Simulated scan of single mutants.
Amino acid sequence: MIKERLNGAPLHALINNAGISPKAADGRRLTSLTTPVETWMDVFHVNLLAPILLAQGLLDELKLGSGAIVNVTSIVGSRVHPFAGTAYATSKAALACLTREMAHDYAPHGIRVNAIAPGEIKTDILSPETEALLAPIIPMHRVGTPDEVAKVIFFLCSEAASYVTGAEVPINGGQHV
Rank of each mutant, 00 (worst) to 15 (best):
M1C: 02
I2L: 12
E4A: 11
E4G: 05
R5W: 04
L6T: 04
A9H: 13
A9W: 09
A9M: 04
H12R: 13
H12I: 00
N17G: 09
A24Y: 03
A25C: 03
A25R: 13
T31C: 00
V37Q: 15
D42M: 14
V43N: 07
N47Q: 11
L49Y: 03
P51Y: 05
I52S: 10
L53H: 13
Q56L: 11
Q56N: 14
G57T: 04
G57Y: 08
G57C: 04
L58P: 11
L62F: 12
K63E: 15
A68M: 00
V70F: 04
T73Q: 02
I75E: 05
I75C: 00
V76A: 15
G77A: 12
H81K: 02
H81L: 01
F83H: 14
T86G: 04
A87V: 09
Y88F: 14
T90L: 12
S91Y: 04
K92M: 06
A93R: 14
A93N: 07
L98N: 02
E101V: 15
Y106P: 03
H109Q: 10
H109W: 08
G110N: 10
I111M: 02
I111C: 01
P118L: 12
P118S: 13
G119P: 09
E120D: 13
I121V: 15
I125H: 07
L126R: 00
S127L: 05
E129M: 03
E129Y: 04
T130P: 05
T130F: 10
L134R: 12
A135D: 11
A135F: 03
P139R: 08
G144H: 15
P146C: 14
V149P: 03
F155A: 14
F155E: 14
L156V: 06
L156C: 10
L156H: 06
L156S: 07
S158G: 11
A161R: 07
Y163E: 03
V164T: 11
E168C: 14
E168Y: 01
I171L: 07
I171S: 03
N172T: 10
G173D: 09
G174M: 09
H176D: 12
H176S: 15
H176L: 15
